[in-house]
Amino acid sequence: MSEITLTDANFKIEVLDSEMAVLADFWAPWCGPCQMVGPIVAAIAKEYEGKIKVGKLNVDENPVTASEYGIMSIPTIKIFKRGKIVEEMVGVQPAIAITQKIDKVLAE
């Protein structure tokens, strides 16, 4: 499955109420480093299909959610499990750093 688009409107349903763990990528179009994370997250969405839900939230278009989660730096990746943040990463990460965190979350 490819990534889903997260918004202020669907964040509760798609992320907080999700049965499956969710990886949320907070990004914006003007942020160069965010563009680097894009393809990595897309590949993870394919690789972890059925195990974790992967979504992208444009902080410019969805300021309510970005502000609620205190986003002050992008790219930021947060992993949610049963509505709670269990992992977070700020800045560009190599794929393996992200998948190690996912594996840890899935093993718990």
């Binding site: 205190g70 002050m72 977070e88």
Partner: peptide, 17 residues
């Protein structure tokens, strides 16, 4: 405080301030 007010990319993060 990385990502909580400490930043290395003004282009990325200026809008949060």
């Amino acid at each position: 405080f990385l990502g909580k007010g400490v930043s290395y990319c003004a282009t990325c993060d200026s809008m949060f301030f």
